[in-house]
Amino acid sequence: MAAYDVNGSAVEHDEEGYITNLSEWSKDLADVIAAAEEVNMTDEHWAVVNFLRDYYEEYQIAPAVRVLIKAIKKSLGPDVGNNKYMYELFPYGPAKQACKIAGLPKPTGCV
């Protein structure tokens, strides 16, 4: 199985790049995944990733993209919490790609 290299230690991921053991996530790993996804992590990226991790911790699911955007709009305002900007942050889909960087499973309902 393929793996990310985080400071010399291997973290396994599936064929789409989602890590297989959610407890192996770290901020360093997030940077490694983001680099593999060609995403340059800014504070706004981190805000989304942190929100996803908190949501998963509380509800045991990754939120659907519209739920994510609605929540980000509430916490960070409409300039960040809108479809267009979120896709600029995560071109391959804010839920799908951000979940991967956040070390979560692919969101329910994402094909």
């Binding site: 509380e58 509800y59 045991q60 699911i61 939120p63 659907a64 609605k70």
Partner: peptide, 14 residues
């Protein structure tokens, strides 16, 4: 097994 009872509390978001 996953404790999916927590997920019921997310239903309002949906």
């Amino acid at each position: 097994l996953k404790n999916f009872s927590a997920t019921f509390r997310a239903l309002g978001d949906y």
